[in-house]
Simulated assay, not measured.
Amino acid sequence: MRIYLCAKELCRKLHQQIDAVDDQRYDMETKVAKSNKEIDDLKIKVQDLKGKFKKPVLKKVRMSADAMLQALLGSKHKVSLDLRANLKQVKKEVKEEEKEAVGDWRKNIEDKAGMDGRKKMFESEA
């Protein structure tokens, strides 16, 4: 009878340990499922951000050729490059014909009035 009671208690202990392990397994499965769902959500957010990413507007930086070469090559290399030294100077010519073509439209209104004026207008264009 004693053996029977010991076996019964042993079985109860084993069942309690199995229940505890089963509870832990269930808790870990739910944690893993929750983590997997969060990972999937974050992957979707990353994909959305990649598609909608706006490139930032770059600032214009004025830098001389010497400063640019010094920045690229470092302060060890002393290179002087004057890009404007070999350029030709060009003077801008103002066309006088264009200024004469633009005039006051009211000056010629009397000349173009009537059939004679229209005839003159078509003859001068042709």
Rank of each mutant, 00 (worst) to 15 (best):
M1C: 11
M1S: 14
I3Y: 06
L5R: 14
L5C: 13
L5N: 14
C6F: 09
A7H: 12
K8E: 13
C11N: 15
C11Y: 11
K13F: 12
L14S: 12
H15K: 10
Q16S: 15
A20Q: 14
V21Q: 15
D23W: 13
D23I: 11
Y26A: 13
Y26R: 12
D27E: 15
M28W: 04
M28E: 13
T30A: 15
T30C: 10
K31I: 04
K31R: 14
K37W: 00
E38V: 02
E38P: 00
D40I: 00
D40T: 04
D41C: 03
L42M: 04
L42F: 01
K43A: 07
K43N: 14
I44G: 11
K45H: 06
K45N: 03
D48C: 03
D48H: 03
L49C: 01
L49Q: 07
K50V: 02
K50Q: 05
K52H: 09
F53G: 02
F53H: 08
F53D: 05
K54E: 07
P56I: 01
K59Q: 01
K60A: 02
V61L: 07
V61S: 02
A65K: 07
A65N: 01
M68Y: 06
L69Y: 03
Q70S: 12
A71F: 08
A71Q: 09
A71L: 14
L72S: 04
L73Q: 04
G74F: 02
S75N: 12
K76H: 05
L81H: 06
R84G: 00
A85P: 05
N86S: 07
N86G: 06
K88V: 06
Q89G: 01
Q89D: 08
V90F: 04
K92P: 00
V94R: 14
V94D: 06
K95C: 13
K95M: 06
K95Y: 10
E96S: 11
K99S: 12
A101W: 04
V102T: 02
G103A: 07
G103L: 03
D104G: 01
W105K: 13
W105C: 03
R106H: 09
R106K: 09
K107C: 04
K107R: 07
K107S: 08
I109M: 04
D111F: 15
K112P: 00
A113R: 12
A113Q: 11
A113E: 07
G114M: 03
G114Y: 03
D116Y: 05
D116W: 03
G117L: 08
G117W: 02
K119R: 10
K120E: 13
M121A: 15
F122H: 10
E125L: 13
A126T: 04
